[in-house]
Simulated assay, not measured.
Amino acid sequence: MITTVTLNASIDKIYTIASPMEVGAVQRVATVIDNAGGKGLNCARAVATCGERVCATGFVGGHNGAYLCERFTKDGIAHDFVRTARETRCCLNIIEPSKRSTEFLEPGRPVTAEDVAAIEAKVAELAGNSDVVTFNGSVPTGCGNDIYRTLVATVRAAGKPALLDTSGKLLVGSLDARPTMIKPNTDEICAILGRKPESLEEVVAAAREVREAHGVAQVVVSLGGDGAIMSCADGEFRGVAPKIEVVNTVGSGDTMVGAFAVAIAHGMAPADQLRYAMACASANCLTASTGHFEMASAEELMAGTRVERI
């Protein structure tokens, strides 16, 4: 089983509009898609799509939290959340006819010290029955910048892989807990090293430096349409997915983390993990609904996804 931890869950609404967005004017929405959202919940859906058992945990609260759980139950995904007194946030993604995407992300409502203690106990409980645990996204006020370091250390002490996908102080402050995998972009690498890699060669060197300096087994750097770089004990690899007609890119990074969790749980070699995860992430870009993809599409894309040792 894979456990996903989402401390800043949301109700994600996708608005598709029929004409380009005009600032200051009334916008008529053509279609609406509601999802149980937050990076970790997108990750959980990816794990389920890959055919693996998954349990989603984190914070939920209020009417939105109840609706979120209802949506996840309808999707057939197990969940075991900590209930808070404050309302779960909402996030909007507006997609124009050109496929340009504009997001409005609410902050998470504050949580209490008791809520934090409850999620620490919940993660410790679930880690014992998990093959892999993922930690995804931002955190609400009240968690503090050390929350992921504490939770990752709990999972690692249980002898289980911990995958961390976050940014800023949350990422930098968690590295001494030695997460199994991190997935920074070049801005996040800059936050770790104090410099931003520009060329492909600099990205490769930076990924290796982060891995060796902090004891992270796998550092995966997303390059958007240019693929991804992975540094691991086996060496450095570049993955490049086939060109596709993109519908919605939101959630593709979360899908990649979920697919990596499945690949690690199945004992795949690192290069095969990268190929599998990139194919699933690309398949996510083919659907309008955030964090959803068809496994058949991922399998087709996998055949054309190149992974090369650098």
Rank of each mutant, 00 (worst) to 15 (best):
T88F: 11
N136M: 15
T287E: 08
M181C: 12
A113Q: 15
T186M: 13
L41I: 15
I17Y: 02
S297F: 05
F260T: 05
A177I: 01
L92Y: 12
H266L: 04
T150I: 07
I33E: 06
S167Q: 08
A261H: 02
C143D: 10
N93E: 05
A241T: 03
G65V: 04
G159Y: 06
P140K: 00
N8W: 06
E300N: 13
V139C: 12
N136G: 05
S222E: 10
Y148M: 11
A206Q: 02
A191L: 03
T4V: 09
S167T: 12
N248S: 13
R89C: 02
T31S: 15
N136Q: 15
R109F: 01
G40W: 05
A85T: 12
C232H: 04
C285R: 07
A206Y: 04
R71T: 08
D187T: 12
A25T: 06
P270G: 00
E294N: 15
I11D: 06
G51N: 00
E294H: 15
K196M: 08
V203F: 02
C90W: 01
P161T: 10
V152M: 02
K39N: 10
T166D: 06
V47H: 00
V262Y: 04
G38R: 01
A241G: 02
S297I: 00
D165R: 14
R178M: 10
H292A: 11
V111E: 09
G137S: 09
N35R: 12
T57S: 10
T16C: 11
I229F: 12
V111T: 08
R100W: 14
Q273P: 15
E22I: 05
V262R: 07
P242R: 09
G304C: 08
G61D: 09
M181Y: 05
I119K: 06
I95L: 14
I94W: 09
E198I: 11
S10A: 15
T154S: 12
V82T: 10
A233I: 01
L68R: 01
P110R: 08
V152R: 03
E52K: 07
K74L: 11
V47S: 01
A296T: 13
A271W: 02
A177L: 00
A271F: 05
